[in-house]
Amino acid sequence: MENAAEKLITDMTYFISELLPVNIEQVKNKLSAIMVKYHVTQIEDEEAHPDLYEKIKLYLSAKKLEGLSSATLKGYELELNIFANKIRKKAVDVTSADVRIYLADLEHLKMSTIGQKLSILKSFFGWLVGEEVIKRDPTMKLKTPKTEKRLPKALTIEELEMLREACNTVRQRAFIEILYATGCRLSEVYALNKDSINFQTMSTNVIGKGNKEREVYFSWKALYHLKKYLKTRTDDCGALIVTERKPYRRLSKRGIQYEINQIAKSAGLEKRVSPHTLRHTFATLLLNNGAELVAIQELLGHSSSDTTLRYARITEERKREQHKKYLVQ
């Protein structure tokens, strides 16, 4: 049975013989001498072309050097490999029609999800063009689908107090106070260790999106309940928040989300409450209490103030108060 190189030599020889009157054996021998310098792999019709996967690896390596988080890189890798499995072409051969058909097959998904997938493809092909790996970006003319912009629902002061009073354990109360006082993302709180808390300055450093480090601050109430929780701990695990049962280990992100959900149920709150809801609440109440937008942006770790404005929703009472205070009569 012929290997890939032999089959390629045979195919090329007969192709040449159809164009020119040649000695087939001489041509095969000459091509064989050339081909020994190369490793040839045959691509089966049902296989995806390896070129696209190779370009994906290059792209992810470059993005890793740019400081993208491991979670973001894994998400990009998953999405791009799904695309490669579907398209089965070399990167240079991918067309706008290929991308449109791929996205059209995802009609069962939300427009926001399809928009995210297209955004990743735009980043990938845009990078390939920028690095002069390919000359044409097949996603350039494709527009990101419009999605309904919904303002995040923050808790009112009354709802926040209901959440606090519904806590059944010191650990649950520590959850609530830390998430609210720092305005941290779930992933940032999850990664905290006991020795990373500076009780004197009432602060800690967290690693946010884009691998950016920033300082966040605790309230007196948050530190009080955190100390109260830590005093109940008898384990030697370094994580700030651990499981309640042995073997003690860092509580997972899903575990934290579950606890917050249980507290919200106990409080009888009708709206959905997640760790991110407390982040919204942090931003909204700071803004309504007179904090500068730039300061809130820094505290949340946003690179753009536009993102901060989506988190911070001013209340009707605050709008009315600002109108009366600043309107020139």
Rank of each mutant, 00 (worst) to 15 (best):
A4Q: 04
E6C: 09
E6Y: 04
K7W: 08
L8P: 02
T13L: 06
T13W: 00
L20T: 13
E25D: 09
K30R: 15
K30D: 11
S32Y: 08
A33H: 12
V36P: 08
K37T: 07
H39L: 09
V40I: 15
V40K: 13
T41F: 12
I43H: 06
E47H: 12
E47R: 11
H49T: 07
H49W: 02
Y59T: 08
S61H: 13
K64Q: 14
E66I: 06
E66N: 12
S70L: 15
S70P: 03
L80K: 01
I82M: 10
A84R: 01
A84C: 08
A84L: 09
I87S: 03
R88P: 02
R88S: 12
R88W: 02
K90C: 14
A91P: 04
V94Y: 02
T95P: 12
A97L: 15
A104G: 10
D105T: 11
L106K: 15
L109T: 06
M111A: 13
T113C: 04
S119A: 14
F124M: 09
V129C: 12
V129E: 15
V129Q: 08
E132H: 13
R136E: 15
R136K: 15
D137F: 08
K143Q: 14
K143P: 05
T144C: 03
P145Y: 10
P145W: 10
K146F: 07
T147F: 14
K149Y: 08
T156I: 11
I157A: 14
M162Q: 14
M162V: 03
E165W: 04
A166I: 04
N168R: 15
Q172W: 01
R173Q: 10
A174F: 02
A174H: 01
I176A: 00
E177T: 01
C184H: 00
R185T: 01
L186D: 00
E188Q: 03
Y190H: 14
S203R: 04
V206K: 09
G210K: 03
N211C: 10
E213P: 05
E215A: 12
K221A: 10
A222V: 01
L223D: 00
H225C: 03
L226M: 11
L226T: 03
L230S: 00
K231D: 14
K231C: 08
C237Y: 04
C237D: 15
G238F: 07
E244Y: 11
R245K: 15
K246Q: 14
L251I: 14
R254T: 13
G255I: 07
Q257P: 07
Q257H: 09
I263S: 00
I263G: 01
L269G: 05
R272T: 09
S274N: 09
H276F: 02
L287R: 03
N288K: 08
E292L: 06
E292M: 05
L293A: 07
V294G: 12
V294C: 10
Q297W: 05
A312K: 03
I314E: 04
E316S: 14
E321A: 10
K325L: 14
